[in-house]
Amino acid sequence: MFSYKIVLVGNFGVGKTSLIRRFVENSFSEEYLSTIGVSISKKTIGNATIMIWDIEGHTEFKPIFKQYLMGAKGFILVADLLRQETIEALQNHIDLCYAVVKDAPICIALNKCDMPHEISQREIEEISKLSPTVLKVLKTSAKENEAVEDLFLTLDTRIKESIKAD
């Protein structure tokens, strides 16, 4: 048995808390209760316990707190398909993650795909090229439970591989 830490990073309101709730306890709420500070959940997958850090989202007047990212083995970056600015912010989040934990793998969730949205395959490909550490870009829905498992498990698999290799 061993445990490792991952962090969900993104702008406020993109659905970080909702994705974690869906993954950990398979539930969803329409009500938006913004996360202030950080709260940690855990979930056991196989022989590992994942400590999932749900940190407060980036807002115009509050940047993301670097300390929260330290010690992570991987990141899930979240953007909201309905808000272009949250997608444009991904590059900054990637840079921040890289500055704190070099070479940590990243999965990107383009969340709320249950809502009508416009994103082309080309844009998705461009997002996946933002950094070589990006493993996968997924359209997710915490609400409809779409691609949520895939998101967390892809990262889990990669992290376990790298721990084994050490």
């Binding site: 445990s3 490792y4 830490k5 996360t35 202030i36 500070g37 950080v38 709260s39 940690i40 855990k42 400590m51 707190f65 300390q67 929260y68 330290m70 010690g71 992570a72 083995k73």
Partner: peptide, 28 residues
């Protein structure tokens, strides 16, 4: 301690290297 204090996971090496750790605003 990691069973009680989940936030320590990931910081083991820093702690053993006697680095001070400071994490603000944890909600529990």
């Amino acid at each position: 301690i990691r069973e009680t204090l989940w936030e320590i996971v990931g910081f083991e090496e820093d702690i053993l290297r006697e680095q001070k750790l400071e994490i603000p605003m944890i909600l529990r």
